[in-house]
Design a protein around this nucleic acid. Structure first.
Lengths: 336, 336
DNA sequence: CTGTTAGCGCATTCAG
DNA sequence: CTGAATGCGCTAACAG
């Protein structure tokens, strides 16, 4: 029923090889015959079968994307960066949600490899031995986006989470705060959880401020979590005068908790978030946040992947994108 | 290099047909030989090539998803519903952003058909003749999610936008408001734009309130738009005492504009949004909103698509999901 | 510049 | 219950 390359060849009075050539833009075709072929294609409404093409050429122009949760503000922005660059390089994306469950992640890797994707883009938290094994036992190039494996065995694109958290904490310290609360992410996440916490601790230490366990809360990255932990903070005898949250959603929860208790942000409590998602502009006061360029991370990761898929030379397997702090109204104007 | 079905056959001492049978769960295989084959598969680390399978079977267990913008709060939630159900039915998703540009949409449809997707899920605003033509000229089943074509030629899953807007406006009227502002979506969008506006107008009409053009603003669905239009509203001699925004982001902008001008929500101005995205819970006051069940729309659309792909009988091509209003603090407690 | 010939890896008749 | 044979639609040498 569907028209094949063979039908076109017959219609145009040439061989299928020639049709294949014009379809693939091969220059070794006389303009005249090219025209004939194009005419036949048009007349017949020929549409090349990418599956057959993939089987014959061993390339599918498709990359697999494993992402924790596409409905997350953070990851959906990342995904957009990935998709835009993929489109630019003529790739399509098979998108899979993993919910960060190891078993599902491994199964997805397998499924995507079965589908013969030309490359793999992986997002998640901790990269375990199982991941490494699954990802390195294949010829298909893989890039980690917004994650990194401990030994940097795989190419990755991230920011320096440790330094970012350090900077945020230091900024608070320089504003004169001694009691700085932190709402962390899950410690099972080496970067977004552990590293940011480490950066926080080190900044305190370097400033000669001893860590107060009461000012550290383990959040789950959701709004509610920021809300409730901040409420607890505020019930301390000596509540924090500043809060650093491991992501923006929790930071916004923190702002609201402060406001709900009749206090003022930033006058009574200053708040800094992390990631700089679009929400930061949609709160009052607007949220100061550490910029993690999600879109760029996705875009750069995809770009990097195209190089691997293309066997191009890559100088740096592990790329760190710059971060900075975007100051808004949840912190007081600079003291300077 | 990669191990094929043929290698497995040799290793197991059977024919490739038999291997194919066990891989595909065909019951006509003696348990004993099945075991042999499974053993060989295990030993060789055989991974079926889905592309070859697709070529031979004419099924790819992949569906194409065309979405305006995956980084949107609204669509990413929809996408999650789609993907979850797709996974449940063993399908993978090729995700493409269209930015609602007609040309790109048509091109994406074509690309996805080239890739031999088993089905197509389309999201967008207006369904034009071009779309219809591209989508109906193929055997590949298509379902529209959160959109509908004017003549219901294509299967679709939506809510009744007209009625939803009517209900929201009526709710405001019943709270005693006479001057109700509306920030609409783009009128190029028949449902989210036009229909919601029509519902608003009809509700006013039914209540004997004449439409005041000054209280209608054409928004673009973004936060900034809600903010700026509401500022303009508040500068009128007789500003609105209530605002209905065509989506939540603009509604939140409206809240902030009211607050920025020193007024109070809901005491001075009541605000109702639309869609009930997660953000509604992350503002102060929390936003009352018309519930459009994005996740469910995606899930139901995907489920519907599986039926078509499976040649199952479908009773209702055009499904309308229920809507309701979720009352929060941007409206006053019920007058009842 | 063009045609011929082989597969790509697998599902699927059809026999047996 | 199993094997042999065929072809899905296309790319990729290889000739010419």
């Amino acid at each position: 029923m569907p028209v094949t390359i063979y039908d076109v060849a017959r219609e145009a009075g040439v061989s299928m090889a020639t049709v294949s050539r014009v379809v693939n833009g091969n220059p070794n075709v006389k303009p005249m015959t090219r025209k004939k072929v194009l005419g036949a294609i048009e007349r017949l409404g020929y549409r090349p079968n990418a599956v057959a093409r993939g089987l014959a050429s061993k390339k599918t122009t498709t990359v697999g994307v494993i992402i924790p949760d596409i409905s997350s503000l953070f990851f959906s922005e990342l995904a957009r960066g990935i998709e835009d660059i993929a489109t630019m390089y003529k790739y399509n994306i098979i998108l899979c949600n993993s919910d960060q469950r190891l078993e599902k992640e491994l199964q997805l890797i397998n499924t995507l490899l079965e589908k013969q994707v030309d490359g793999l883009l992986f997002m998640g938290a901790e990269i375990k031995e199982d991941h490494l094994q699954a990802l390195t036992s294949t010829q298909v190039p893989t890039v980690l986006a917004a994650t990194r494996d401990a030994d940097n065995k795989l190419p990755s694109v991230t920011i320096d989470h440790y330094q970012a958290a350090y900077d945020a904490t230091e900024a608070l310290i320089q504003r004169g705060h001694k009691r700085i609360g932190m709402i962390t992410g899950p410690m099972s996440d080496p970067l977004g959880g552990l590293m940011r916490f480490e950066g926080y601790k080190q900044a305190l230490k370097d400033a000669g401020i001893s860590l107060d366990e009461a000012l550290v809360a383990g959040g789950n990255l959701f709004y509610e979590s920021g809300l409730s932990h901040t409420k607890e903070f505020l019930q301390l005898k000596e509540p924090p005068t500043a809060i650093f949250a491991a992501n923006d959603e929790m930071a916004i929860g923190a702002i609201h908790a402060v406001q709900d208790s009749g206090l003022h942000v930033p006058n009574d409590v200053e708040v800094i978030g992390h990631d700089n998602i679009r929400l930061t502009e949609m709160v009052r006061p607007r949220l100061t946040s550490v910029v993690q360029p999600m879109y760029d991370i996705g875009a750069v990761a995809m770009r990097l992947l195209t190089k691997y898929m293309n066997n191009e030379h890559v100088e740096e397997h592990v790329v760190l994108l710059p971060h900075r702090i975007e100051y808004r109204e949840s912190t007081k104007p600079d003291q300077a």
